[in-house]
Design a protein around this nucleic acid. Structure first.
Length: 588
DNA sequence: GTGAGGGAG
DNA sequence: CATTCTCCCTCAC
């Protein structure tokens, strides 16, 4: 069995252009020609390119935005439902092109695809004599499905750009035998797939995307952003210095070197700040002056430190390497391997796989921010509103309709934990050089089972959850009777335990089937009075269960004595109650 | 297991 | 500076 080589992977990164604004434009096409901004609270979270042409930027205050562009059309985007729905729809659309299950969503508006198998298959079918008139096969089993393309050149822009004479253009003029050319061909073929998918996305769904083509998530994402919006970029070989003769350098390094460190995914605000501080402070004295005390001081370099620092500058610092990066970036709470990881990132190294999308999230949370939230009465009202939204979300994202005539809904997963977070507003005059930003604080507790009762109204459940759990959690967070001033409330459910159904991975289907038949067994017991086997037996006898079930052919809905399960909403016959409760109790 | 904190869009 | 409203992961305890 061949071991798949990481540097042979072909990865695409899709990034929908100004996604929130595009969702509104797709709903109301008349908006496309107007400057459009999406508002959350006092912030413009994103705006379309009409608005950007007039000088608007992301994350600007609405006040400033209006001043810059008085004719700006502003829509409210605090409710994320429409964005979540559009994101899911586009994800399913993109996924339908891809053969492997390696299609990973990042946030609402980005997708990574591993298209190695599609590219290899299509390279195998190329005819060297008619490359200019090739056919890209999108279906292994139906040779009529696909599109024609010119396999003698890349589709769309490249990095370095085709016009720069220094590097080989993205064409197939060289021998087909060198390793560089084989990578070249893979990326070239992938660029055509990317172009085709972008046009399908635009014409069938009305969304444009910016796409990157390379061999890792890191590189595909970074190179994609070279040509924005509504375009694509392929990072050309050579990817190894040795590949292209003496004196040449890897395009990976040349590309990475030009980037500002903050642009590199994995180097966030904090790490970039530490790196810039080191460049600014250690330039004169060198690496030996770096002491532990110096590293702990956040304020030593306050004020300045906003200078642009590139990957190259960091890489070429005296003594730079994983060890020094560990000293600069390590410390309390930092990952142990931070030095090696960042050193890899600076060199464009990223071995992480494109993960198959999960269909159950690890966490669901709802939050709102407030200008004034100071009384218990207000808090209780807001908690109730948020909780109702959260339960609504749990129902849409964690349940599915049953196919048969058992209970109408079944929970696909049960969160075990409830968490309440708040963010106290920083006291107005606690300033000076020691100003600490107050982050969120949180408390968690077991999530009571009654929230899973589908038959209870959402408002009633929300009221109950606030009264019986969230208020006491709030008191733990804020023991003082008053005097607090909150800028944010967040309620989350976490620690999902999947009840049954789809799992990830190659044999996940079989495991899924097994659990599904367990579900079927349970459902049968809710309607089948004649069954007398103990449920525990059904557990160990899944495979022998008859395929025909009593109610699948008949449409009879008989009235059966029993109890509605507080956990899954199923009607449980009295004799099965104990076993059913055991089924719900979480495995350790 | 809990809560803080850093990363992402 | 974070700001919005999320989601994911790792760390010290």
């Amino acid at each position: 069995m061949a071991i798949p080589r990481k540097d042979h992977r072909v990865i695409l990164h899709f990034d929908y252009d100004c996604f929130y604004a595009s969702v509104f434009e797709a709903e109301q096409p008349a908006l496309k020609s107007l400057p459009l901004a999406v508002q959350q609270k006092q912030i413009v979270v994103t705006c379309n390119y009409e608005a950007r042409r007039r000088g608007l930027r992301k994350l600007q205050l609405v006040k400033e935005a209006k001043k810059i562009c008085p004719e700006l059309v502003i829509v409210l985007g605090e409710d994320l439902t429409r964005f979540r729905d559009a994101s899911k729809e586009l994800y399913a659309f993109i996924k339908s092109f891809v053969w492997s299950d390696r299609v990973e969503r990042l946030g609402f508006d980005e997708i990574f695809l591993d298209v190695t198998d599609m590219v290899e298959y299509n390279i195998g079918l190329l005819n060297k004599n008619t490359l200019h008139d090739s056919f890209f096969h999108l279906d292994r089993h139906d040779p009529t499905v696909g599109f024609v393309y010119n396999a003698t050149q890349c589709h769309g822009p490249t990095w370095p750009s085709a016009s720069t004479s220094a590097s080989a253009p993205c064409t197939l003029t060289t021998a087909l035998t060198s390793s560089s050319t084989s990578l070249h061909l893979r990326l070239l073929v992938a660029s055509h797939l990317a172009g085709y998918m972008r046009s399908q996305l635009e014409h069938q769904k009305g969304y444009t995307a910016t796409v990157g083509v390379s061999t890792s998530k890191l590189l595909a994402k970074l190179v994609g952003s070279v040509h924005k919006p509504n375009n694509q970029t392929t990072l050309l070989p050579p990817y190894e210095p040795a590949e292209h003769g003496l004196g040449s350098t890897s395009n990976i390094l040349r590309f990475m070197d030009g980037l500002e460190i903050r642009k590199v995914p994995g180097i966030g605000y904090k790490l970039a700040h530490k790196l810039r501080a080191y460049v600014g402070g250690a330039a004169a004295s060198g690496p030996t002056t770096l002491s532990d005390t110096e590293l702990g001081s956040d304020t030593a370099t306050a004020g300045d430190n906003s200078e642009e620092v590139t990957v190259k500058q960091i890489r070429l610092l005296p003594g730079m390497g994983p060890r020094l990066l560990n000293k600069i970036l390590g410390g309390a709470g930092a990952p142990k391997d931070i030095g090696v990881r960042v050193w890899g990132l600076l060199h464009g190294v990223d071995d992480s796989d494109v993960l198959a999308g999960r269909d159950i999230p690890t966490q669901i949370s709802i939050e709102d921010s407030y200008g004034k939230l100071t009384t218990l009465h207000e808090v209780k009202r807001e908690l109730t509103t948020l909780t109702a939204s959260l339960i609504r979300r749990m129902r849409t994202d964690l349940t599915e309709q049953n196919v048969d005539s058992g209970p109408r809904f079944r929970w696909r997963a049960h969160p075990k934990l409830l968490r309440l977070s708040t963010r106290p507003r920083p006291p107005p005059e606690a300033d000076g050089p020691r100003t600490r930003i107050w982050n969120r604080i949180s408390r968690s507790a077991a999530l009571p089972l009654y929230v899973f009762n589908i038959d209870e109204s959402i408002d009633a459940l929300a009221e109950k959850l606030v009264q019986e759990h969230l208020l006491s959690m709030f008191r733990k967070l804020h023991p003082e009777k008053f005097g607090w001033n909150l800028s944010l409330l967040n309620i989350a459910v976490t620690n999902m335990v999947e009840s049954a159904g789809e799992q990830r991975g190659s044999n996940g289907r079989d495991i899924g089937k097994m659990f599904r038949s367990q579900e079927r067994v349970l459902s049968e017991w809710t309607v089948n009075e004649s069954g007398n086997e103990p449920l525990a037996n059904a557990d160990t006898d899944l495979d022998n269960h008859p395929t025909g079930t009593p109610w699948e052919d008949g449409d009879d809905e008989e009235e059966i004595p029993g109890t509605i399960c507080q956990t899954c909403g199923a009607l449980i016959p009295t004799f099965a109650l104990v076993a059913h409760a055991q089924y719900h109790s979480a495995p350790d």
